[in-house]
């Protein structure tokens, strides 16, 4: 009963709800509110960026790591010394900036997505189990959550890189751990409140196993806030990767990474500002788009998360 007050948001008993809706012939209410134009644009940007990242080998005009030393620091196509061969100019080693930005999308989005998925799986699994079983396991998980929340993550990332050296596997491990605590906290909290519902008790009375209760009754009810959190987490991981790469301890050369491109480009701000500005703009464009989508999703799916 308590659940029904929150509206026809989720699964349990949805069959009867839709039947009832049919009977009174009410207009079907969409789960998704209308999408403002700005959010459409943001979705468009993200889709284009993902396509660019996926099709990088097909659309990049040059090899992102091959150096043409005779064509170093060429201007963009708009500059007098630029050419249509290098639309966004070349860097200090004569590499095509446009191709590096395109491949950089692959690195940035790939690592961001990887970190987000690992954090989501790790955090929500631990959170759900903690919330469901309580006791010692819950205490340990929540203590670890507290520790991670108490410290700026970049400090831990730096310590880890100092220990294991900068490399791609280390970076992937770091971004995987980044943000798990948020997923754990939210999923645990949701499980704690959801498992008190009558339908969970009913399932238990019918002899459903713990695993079944979790998969069939708890998980469907906690996905909405997790999706929102995952979206917002994606941008923090993209920013984390670019920050570490900017500091020279993230993605290692010759791989193209936006953060690293900015760091290399800042040496030439006076003569070739676009070397740093173009990848920086790419980072801002993607993080802003995803953040806006995340905010919109939060308001659309889960008003209780608002303002956090």
């Amino acid at each position: 009963m308590a659940r029904s007050l929150t509206g026809p948001r989720k699964a349990t008993g949805s069959g009867s709800v839709s039947k009832a809706t049919k009977l009174v012939d009410a207009p079907r209410r969409s789960r998704w509110p209308a999408m403002p134009w700005l959010i459409r644009v943001c979705f468009g940007i993200v889709v284009v960026m993902v396509l660019v990242a996926l099709a990088a080998p097909l659309i990049a005009p040059h090899d992102p790591v091959s150096q043409t030393l005779t064509a170093r620091l060429q201007g963009t196509a708009l500059h007098a010394d630029g050419s249509s061969e290098y639309l966004l100019g070349t860097d200090q080693l004569g590499r095509d900036v446009l191709s590096r930005v395109i491949y950089g999308a692959q690195v940035s989005l790939g690592i961001g997505l990887f970190g987000m998925v690992v954090g989501l799986i790790l955090g929500s699994t631990l959170g759900i189990i903690a919330g469901f079983t309580r006791g010692f396991f819950d205490d340990v998980v929540m203590f670890l959550v507290d520790v991670q929340l108490a410290l700026p993550f970049i400090i831990m990332a730096l310590a880890a890189i100092a220990i294991f050296g900068p490399s791609l596997p280390v970076l992937l491990a770091i971004v995987g751990i980044a943000g798990w605590e948020g997923f754990a906290r939210v999923s645990r909290g949701m499980v704690l409140s959801t498992k008190e519902n009558a339908y969970v008790e009913a399932a238990r009375a019918l002899g459903a196993s713990r695993a079944r209760i979790i998969v069939k009754h708890l998980v469907p009810n906690i996905t909405a806030p997790l999706i929102v959190l995952a979206t917002l987490n994606l941008t923090s991981i993209i920013l984390l990767e670019s920050t570490l790469s900017f500091l020279g301890i993230g993605v290692q050369p010759p791989m193209a990474s936006w953060g690293r491109m900015i760091s290399e480009g800042r040496e030439y701000l006076n003569t070739a500002w676009w070397l740093a500005v173009v990848p920086g703009a790419a980072i801002m464009l993607i993080t802003m788009s995803i953040n806006l989508i995340g905010d919109w999703l939060r308001d659309a799916l889960d008003p209780t998360l608002r303002g956090r």
Binding site: T243, I262, A276, V277, I283, M284, T287
Partner: peptide, 18 residues
């Protein structure tokens, strides 16, 4: 505020220098 929240600090710094 939204733009400020999405901009990495190091990039803001570089733009300021520029």
């Amino acid at each position: 505020a939204f733009v400020g929240q999405s901009a990495p600090g190091f990039f803001v710094g570089i733009m300021l220098i520029l």
